[in-house]
Design a protein around this nucleic acid. Structure first.
Length: 430
RNA sequence: GGGGAGAUACCAGAGCGGUCAAAUGGGACAGACUGUAAAUCUGUUGGCGCAGCCUUCGGAGGUUCGAAUCCUCCUCUCCCCA
């Protein structure tokens, strides 16, 4: 199965330029995908691009990951309703380094490979490009009407777009031209929102060099309920374990809806068509087993983090959602307890404050900041939404040292999924 | 530069002198159901020493027994004309 066929059954092709498939069949081709270094970690939205490149490399072609140091300084108007904040160079460099480390998990950068993956930063060739030079060498080839016809620009004309963002497509187009000329890169891939920017690149290549370059986009990942993919109440799902713990990362995939899971397993795992078909079929018979979600969660968590992180995420999940009761919780040794709740918000209080017993409401708002106000804590307690060490408690509950797990810890649960670990210290001032 | 409209809780948006801690919708959170799902139903959604009190309707003053509501000034946003 070639690259295009592979992507097709996975539902990863939104659009491509005529001739793309022929080009790929003809020879080993280089393709690039741009990544905006807006943060010091990728999030799972980027995973789609990474998987695209992964498949591309598996199919024997050469993927180039382009970090948009220069373009990140300008801001892509696509899909944005407002002008963007600009990033400074230091931040961009730092972000690039972090991103590189994460991409290393997925693509093969070994020198021995003819199609080894590469990473570049467009800042390197843009930083010394003079303004006049750019106007003469790039701007001259593209007309205003061509640029204005792009959706990303059209949508913003009403609300306002700066000259800087208007120019964005030229800068990205130039990237493509540069890679075409210097690295023989003939294809640019990206999300479907990038189509306009990509075609400015192919147009520029055609007009300036007479050469032919291609475009391929994948659909933007959506959720069946219309929500934004990759976001939870608490924000983005990051690949950096310091930003999103492996446990939460695992939970994200496990919580996908059935419809989404059927889609995601094709995009985010490398399972073969027959394996996936079998899984889907089985999942439809016994949906409550959530085989699909578990398969995705296992695969993606192991790839992004590690096999070991996956194992502990499963363990933690079993304790938290399985038959977890006060008894099982109390049986855990300190080591296990801490590893299970690694990444869970943590509060420290003095052990001495418990000796006389404290009011649960005071405990929840004053000693810890689990609730922002006492009203909210009371409300939630009335609604039966608070659990202490897996046991539901009421508004008038008094907390004493007898509640401590391992003489040291308290597990507070707000609703079903929000856990807080409270650690007591012997020392008042610790 | 001239003229007009507006600013209300997380968002949208009613209220236009007392009965307003502020309708309604969305979102969010919780409970029931369940598969840690979806759908559905129920409840909550300013604070506190919670049958009561305190602080909120862009900001600062003023009128009034009483202001989100009326007046003055200021700040900001949007629209139209030049």
């Amino acid at each position: 199965m070639n690259f295009i066929e592979e992507l097709k059954w996975r539902g990863m092709i939104h659009d491509m330029m005529p001739g793309t498939e022929e080009q790929l069949n003809k020879e080993m081709t280089s393709a690039y995908i741009g990544i905006d270094p807006t943060a010091d970690s990728l999030h799972i939205g980027h995973l789609v691009s990474i998987m695209l490149m992964k498949h591309f490399q598996i199919a024997g072609h050469k993927p180039i990951a382009l970090v948009g140091g220069a373009t990140g300084m300008i801001g892509d108007p696509s899909g944005k309703s407002e002008e963007r904040n600009l990033l400074d160079e230091e931040t961009l460099r730092h972000n690039q380094q972090c991103i590189q480390i994460q991409i290393n998990h997925f693509l093969d950068f070994s020198d021995s490979l003819p199609n080894k993956a590469e990473m570049t930063n467009n800042y390197d060739w843009m930083k010394n490009f003079s303004f006049l030079g750019f106007l003469r060498d790039v701007g001259k080839h593209i007309s205003i009407s061509y640029m204005m016809a792009k959706d990303s620009v059209k949508k913003r004309l009403e609300t306002g777009i700066s000259f800087t963002e208007f120019t964005y497509q030229l800068v990205q187009g130039y990237d493509f031209l540069w890679l075409y000329e210097n690295k023989n890169c003939k294809l640019q891939m990206g999300g479907s929102d990038q189509w306009g920017n990509i075609t400015t690149g192919t147009e520029l290549i055609r007009r300036k060099t007479g050469g032919e370059a291609f475009a391929l986009t994948c659909p933007l990942i959506t959720k069946a309920d219309g929500g934004k993919f990759g976001k939870t109440e608490s924000g983005n799902i990051w690949l950096d374990p310091a930003k999103t713990s492996p446990y939460h990362f695992y939970q994200f995939w496990l919580n996908c809806s059935d419809d989404d899971a059927e889609k995601y397993i094709k995009i985010f795992t490398l399972f073969s068509k027959s394996e996936i078909d079998a899984l889907i079929e089985q999942h439809r018979v016994e949906p409550h087993l959530r085989l699909l979600q578990k398969a995705i969660a296992k695969e993606v968590t192991s790839n992004v983090h590690s096999e070991k992180d996956y194992q502990s995420a499963v363990e933690a999940s079993e304790i938290l959602f399985g038959k977890g009761t006060y008894e099982t919780l109390n049986k855990l040794d300190e080591q296990t307890l801490l590893s299970v709740f690694d990444g869970v918000p943590r509060f420290n209080i003095a052990k001495s404050s418990l000796t006389d017993g404290i009011d649960i409401v005071d405990f929840l708002c004053e000693h810890t900041q689990i609730f922002p106000s006492k009203s909210e804590a009371r409300r939630m307690l009335k609604e039966n939404g608070v659990q202490l060490n897996k046991t539901r408690i009421g508004e008038s509950y008094k907390l004493t040292t007898a509640n401590l797990l391992n003489q040291k810890y308290l597990l507070v649960q707000k609703g079903k999924k929000n856990y807080y670990l409270v650690v007591t210290n012997e020392n008042e001032y610790d």
